[in-house]
Simulated scan of single mutants.
Amino acid sequence: MTEALERYITFRNIDCVGKSERVMERIQQHIDAEDNPFWPYFQKQRAQAHAMGFDDLRVLHNYLPTLRELLIDLDDETTLALLEDLEVTCM
């Protein structure tokens, strides 16, 4: 049986997928609660990225500066810390 290739070999034993999921879950709370024109755009871009086979780590990486700024403005230190940890450990 052939072993499946790991996408992020250099991040072996780091749960980058789980970290991405936790960040996206918290961001989803803002999407659901906020009236910010960025969020529908972000959701559309995320859907397009997924359709092209990209994962949420890639999506978060693409919008890192904008997300960081929004989370600071929203005073969401928890999600900001999770995003920064994701950046340091997985990007």
Score class of each variant (00 low, 15 high):
K44A: 12
A4R: 11
D56P: 01
R12I: 09
D35V: 09
R68Q: 12
E34I: 00
L60Q: 05
F54A: 08
I31Q: 03
R46I: 06
F42G: 02
G18P: 03
K44W: 03
Q45N: 14
L70H: 09
L74I: 03
M91L: 10
V59Y: 07
S20D: 10
Q43P: 01
D76C: 03
L64D: 04
T10G: 12
D56A: 02
D32Y: 08
D76E: 05
N13M: 09
I9V: 15
N13T: 10
M91N: 09
L67G: 01
T66G: 01
P40I: 10
C16S: 11
N62M: 15
D15S: 12
N62Y: 04
Q28Y: 11
C16D: 03
P65D: 11
T79F: 02
R46S: 08
Y41G: 00
P37V: 06
T89I: 02
D55F: 07
R7L: 15
Q28L: 15
R68A: 06
R58L: 06
D55L: 05
I27G: 05
Y8K: 13
G18S: 04
L67V: 08
R46T: 13
M1D: 11
S20C: 03
D15A: 14
E87L: 01
Y63K: 04
D55S: 10
I27L: 15
P40M: 08
Y8T: 09
T78F: 04
T10Q: 15
H61I: 00
V59H: 08
T89C: 00
A4G: 01
